[in-house]
Design a protein around this nucleic acid. Sequence first.
RNA 1: CGGGGCGUGGCGCAGUCCGGUAGCGCAACGGCUUUGGGAGCCGUGGGUCGCAGGUUCAAAUCCUGUCGCCCCGACCA
Length: 493
Amino acid sequence: MAEITKRSEDYSRWYQDVIREAELADNSPVRGCMVIRPNGYAIWENIQRTLDDRFKELGHVNAYFPLLIPKSFLAKEAEHVEGFAKECAIVTHHRLKQTTQDGKTDVVPDPESKLDEEYVIRPTSETVIWDMYRKWIQSYRDLPILINQWANVMRWEMRTRMFLRTTEFLWQEGHTAHATAEEGRAETLQMLEVYRWFAEDILAMPVITGTKTANERFAGAVETYSIEALMQDNKALQAATSHDLGQNFAKAFDVKFQPPEGQVDHVWATSWGMSTRIVGALIMTHSDDDGLVLPPRIAGTKVVIVPIWKSDEEKARVCEKAQALAAELRPVVGAVHVDDRDNLRPGWKYSEWERKGVPLRLEIGPRDLEKETAMAKTRHDRGKAFIPFAEIASGVQRELDRVQQELYDRAKQRLVENTHTIDSWDDFLALFEKQGGGFAMAHHCGQGDCEQTIQDKTRVTIRNVPFERDETPGECVHCGAPSIGRVVFAQGY
RNA sequence: CGGGGCGUGGCGCAGUCCGGUAGCGCAACGGCUUUGGGAGCCGUGGGUCGCAGGUUCAAAUCCUGUCGCCCCGACCA
């Protein structure tokens, strides 16, 4: 069995090892792409289900827009092109031709199938969607439009990492259209709050909500908001974003509506997204040197039951009970797996399910049958508890709730401990160059070039301007100019 | 795209400097004994040494090219 590198030894190797050992994903034959294996996809499916339910509670509906975007669309919104042009995959032909050279068969694009208008594989869907919204919106009665789509997108990044940055990734992108600026802004903030709730309550991942600086704003947005999490290596990760697009896309795609009174006006837009990147964040938030650790609310398998036996007779009895308990648990806690493989010993199974991050394990052997209890072990703290068969469902649910809470508390404590108030450039440098980083709450002047200089010098960026922050006046930690208050700095993923 | 490292059975690696036709641990498969924290013994199968050229009587090993992965930069969710 391959070992998992210790986090303290080599963090990014640890990260890869966990992904391999938990069978979350595998490399694809195509550079930068990844295969999401069933264990990884189960997590994504739970993310989808939970978010999708919440979106729908808030009145959103799902739709699907095409993968291919006419190249010309991308050019319509000036900042948008600038943001994405460098990382687009382009479809230029629609047919292959067989060729034979030196006895070897190959296929090449058929020159005769060259497209008149080339297509871009979507890096995001604003342009196709707004092209359609022009057709769908005439009157204020057509508004708001609250559409979400679950899709894949491609961004041709130079450097990729499993889940965190892959050439193709999965996400949801919400695209809404509104009659007023206020409504658009409210939608943007509402969806950011959905992401905060999802990260903290479901993923047990504490975040800092705030506004992105102009430098970090989405290409084409008036304002971008984000939730920022802190990974175990003290680097920040943007876990989701929500954009107030103002009238930028409506103007670029000429989407107008007739209000109840007054002149025809361009509509107001938002977009918001969370991607498979969040799975990487999840891994780096909770997992340890023994492998994956998952919060119960998002784990693909919540509980694994390991039956223990010596004789065939015991095996029959123990497995029967294990199945019965699983059947009782499933309606209450969800996915429960009984590991009755007879070619592996219990100890092997324990370590395997620990690597794979199953939050709770029940061990049931002849002795437990006698005592009418199951031994429960929690993955995150190796805690042991005995749960009577008679109250198995409530007992397991209680343990899972405890795990969920403790994972959050643990991550929150780590975030608090690694958030520092920094008041001088020397301390700032010391934090990021000597003390291992983290979040630095420091004054900043709000100037983009000062921010850029800081980044050039230290690779540290302003993650966001937190909603909840110290707004007392001060001097910029870097240039000394009057500050806009404290913002959160960190090295980012 | 620049700098560095690495591609040898499913996984982890040795062998490469100094060419002689591939090995170790784990895993897999079969059998017996086992089973409450990674079982033991016996046996079996599996690798055109990333790929393509070249040098040579002979290439995992030397040369050229190329692809991929990892780390550090520039870009990003």
